[in-house]
Amino acid sequence: MSFTGYFFNIDNWSVPGFLAVMVLFVSYLIFFDTRKLQKLAFGLSLILIYLALGSPLAKLTSFGLHSIVMLQHIILLMITPILLLKALPNSLLQSSWLVSVLNKVKNTYLLLWLLGAVAMWGGHFFSAALLSAKTGTAICGINATAGSWVTAMPSGLSFALLVIAGLLFYLPVFNPLDSGRLAPLKRVVYLFTACVSCSTLGLYVVFSANSAAAVEAIPIFNTLRNPLPMSLRNDQELAGMLMWVPGCILYVMESVNILLKWYDGETAEESTVAAVKISKD
């Protein structure tokens, strides 16, 4: 079937998902008093979540396309958490429990970094096991039987865990409370070291596309009927490169943004004062 035929087919768009997203957005607008930028951020994050989970993009994963899954995960793990953190309403920040937790982030950043890294590496091991269980072949040396516990985990739960891991990982950098953020340069180092870890895995994914194991598993991955016809090798390489290049570029843009703000000489107090002022307007 053609690409446009696939995307314009209403059956491939999740209607309950669309309704849920609308309800969430409207509730956000009604119950919280937030700045325009925050409303935009929340709306965008909902659009992205819908794109990742309820649009034809999500259904493409049923064709076994690694690159589409990668795109989903980049959206859910790397982009949406930033938007959600930016959209966090000030009224929620009044809760003293939340404030004390957010302030502790500065001291626990190593743990949060590790959590992000473990979520990524562990998630890949988990997915490889899941795929191995579904298809019966070894994926990158990982074997799992059809009745293994990995198949019992609902996909909704794993997606939710992804978003939560992303939120926690990003806290030291994008904490809504400035007092809970690391110093600007430390934030850049935090992101860069995560980038190295992610790139190493991306490297592995790309260069393993050629290896013998991938070639043997071809009959299982029938991509002939999918609207994005590509060979297994191309799909795998695309997946790895998505991790690497767009992921790196995203982190570089975030780092540059951090640095530009820092160079203006804004101190932490100044920016929170400015934020409080604007929200009062």
């Binding site: 190493t200 260069f207 290896s211």
Partner: peptide
């Protein structure tokens, strides 16, 4: 060490 480990993993997993 990452470079040396990459060499090791490369030979192990990406060659015949």
């Amino acid at each position: 060490f990452i470079a040396l480990i990459i060499a090791y993993v490369y030979y192990r997993n990406f060659t015949n």
